[in-house]
């Protein structure tokens, strides 16, 4: 494992911890898209079905468990916690996420590495992860104002994607048979979705002003 991948995994973990912290500390999930969180839960559940059949490393197994558990905890808070649930911006979170699930599934059935149950689930999870942030970005754009922790959450998620691209570049040059174009192309698409957010995040940081997205 190279430093880029490790840093990517850590920023991914930090993003989820920031989100849990926001929900726990403020007892509020305003500004957070429940649909995006449910998509991530589905992404992790689909991708990590290999947790019992495929052993890579202790690190991988622990991270898989942490990602599944933390994302399910967030979804549970947003749906089941009496106080948190009330702050959910239901009327702003209207992105038709079932469409994303259906499109990812169709694409996974058409484009995959091998026609097996696990490989199709894996490809599905890669495609779905690439677009899972869309309901969140749309919600932020609609509400205009982005609170600090929500901004940090999306920033760390975007940083994770950027670092994974550096990781693939590194692996491409250091490993003799590194080719995984499904993950790389999806990863590029996913990172591109953050470009707009990053632009405004950078502006607000440079001007030392509150993060605001244009309507």
């Amino acid at each position: 494992m190279n430093i880029f991948r490790f840093a990517g995994d850590m920023t991914h973990l930090i993003s989820i911890l920031v989100l849990l912290l926001k929900i726990y500390a403020t007892k509020s999930c305003s500004g957070i898209s429940r649909k995006t969180q449910e998509l991530y839960a589905l992404v992790f559940l689909a991708r990590y079905v290999d947790i019992f059949t495929e052993f890579i490393s202790v690190y991988n197994t622990i991270m898989k468990i942490v990602f599944i558990a933390s994302t399910l905890a967030i979804v549970w808070c947003m749906r089941g916690h009496r106080v948190v649930r009330r702050s959910y911006d239901k009327e702003l979170d209207t992105f038709r996420h079932y469409f994303l699930i259906a499109a990812s599934l169709v694409l996974a059935l058409l484009v995959h590495e091998k026609f097996t149950f696990q490989e199709i689930l894996w490809a599905f999870s890669i495609y779905l992860e690439a677009v899972a942030i869309l309901p969140q970005l749309v919600l932020l754009q609609r509400s205009g104002n982005v609170d600090n922790l929500t901004g940090q959450y999306v920033f760390f998620l975007g940083a994770y994607r950027g670092l994974y691209i550096l990781n693939w570049i590194y692996r491409y040059f250091t490993e003799p048979h590194f080719s995984r174009w499904i993950a790389c192309v999806s990863g590029l698409v996913q990172t591109a979705l953050y470009a707009d957010f990053f632009y405004y995040y950078f502006l607000s940081w440079k001007n030392n002003a509150k993060l605001k997205l244009p309507a």
Binding site: I56, K64, F67, H177, A183
Partner: peptide
């Protein structure tokens, strides 16, 4: 090799 048969990233 292990790289090609397993999805070793998260």
């Amino acid at each position: 090799d292990q790289e090609s048969k397993a999805h070793d990233e998260l």
